[in-house]
Amino acid sequence: MLSVERTPEETTWSEGEYIPAEQVWAAFGGKEKAKPGGEPKGVAPHQPNPYGAMAFTRAVVQGGVLFAAALVLAALSAMVTAKQPLVQASWTVDPVLTEQVMLTQEFTLPSSKRRNLRLDVNTTVTSGEGIVHAALLNLDTGDAYLIDDQGNQSYSGTLRDVSAGRYVARLELARPTGNTAITGRAVQLSVIRDPGSPLLVWIPLLFAPTSLLFYFLGRSSFETKRWANSDHAPES
């Protein structure tokens, strides 16, 4: 750092280099009584930003390693989940019925450890023509599971740890009364056992590259502290 001090009588130029407290202490003999303790307070005007080239390399490597680990997790997830189709069905929509009920054939969910299900409902019926509600009925226990369509025409819903037994999936196409006839519309349904959760794969994958964001935040935060300690802090 180059600085200048002026009085009417003289002008003094100084050149300074930032040296960590430990280095200064060691240069003066390293006496135990004089050992500096604790973290430095504030940021000196010429203190090097610790988020330099080395930190950037670390951020890139750290993000890459975490991304690779997340890919391994995704591969493991694909291996441990069964993704077993239990039933698949499709129906043609009746042109005029205001309420059409569609039932799949009976299928069995075995009493295995993993009794999670996913229902995928796909339809070409538009939102102005009608909406498809889906339910899963356990014929042995009497449990009925109603799937949340989340306001979509085609949707998926997962069910966690449902009862084993014989099931029927029931779809219901509800249409407004007085609506005009529709043709060429279809509804499809599939039920998958042990589908796994894509969310658990995507969260680590998307988080890994944010190491660069953390790097830039750290760098920016250090410079903000430096200017906050300056006599010439920029006005915000």
């Binding site: 997790l73 493991l76 993993r114 009925l137 009925a144 599971y145 109603l146």
Partner: peptide, 15 residues
């Protein structure tokens, strides 16, 4: 993932 967790996106009732 190893426990096979998925979100539960349904309401249930008895029939």
């Amino acid at each position: 993932i190893s426990a096979g967790w998925v979100p539960h996106e349904a309401v249930s009732e008895q029939i």
